[in-house]
């Protein structure tokens, strides 16, 4: 199945992880800031990596994408996606809201999420790659 990695980033952490995932599974990678929802294709699996910033907000590079989604109201039936969120448990009330918002946005447009949304905690002991690469491998095995 064709696969593409997308990322929303503010400090660059999600960008680096998305590039690592894309390199690991051999897929293309794009910044959500440069991605038009009209380009979503049924039959492609999108792996979306996003952080959370500020008070549970989307990171800067995902905001133009969210605006386009709201304006275009695309029909994403047949589109499959998975979300890897990056959060910081120092801020428990809004932990990983970025990933949650992307999931809600995609699901509301008719896309189907594959597997569970996974979250990395910047204040936790795990390296993001150690969670994300096996996550991507498992998705590729499903696809």
């Amino acid at each position: 199945m064709p696969t593409q990695v997308l990322y929303g980033t503010e400090t660059g952490n999600a960008e680096m992880l998305a590039e690592d995932i894309a390199g690991h599974i051999g897929a293309d990678v794009a910044n959500l800031a440069d991605f038009d929802p009209a380009a979503f294709e049924a039959g492609t699996l999108y792996l979306i990596v996003t952080s959370t910033y500020g008070d549970g907000d989307l990171p800067a590079s995902a905001k133009p994408f969210a605006e386009k989604m709201a304006a275009q109201q695309p029909d994403l039936s047949g589109v499959r996606f998975a979300v890897f969120g990056m959060g910081d448990s120092e801020y428990p009330e809004t932990f990983n809201f970025g990933g949650k918002r992307i999931e809600e946005m995609m699901t509301a447009a008719g896309a189907v999420m594959v597997g569970e949304r996974v979250t990395h905690d910047a204040s936790g002991p795990d390296m993001a790659d150690d969670l994300a690469l096996p996550w991507a491998d498992a998705l590729m095995a499903l696809a």
Binding site: G12, M16, A122, S123, M127
Partner: peptide
């Protein structure tokens, strides 16, 4: 020193 999550951008720079 209690914002280790913020300090985690160091992992980008290590690379």
């Amino acid at each position: 020193p209690d914002h280790q999550g913020t300090k985690a951008v160091i992992r980008q720079f290590e690379r």
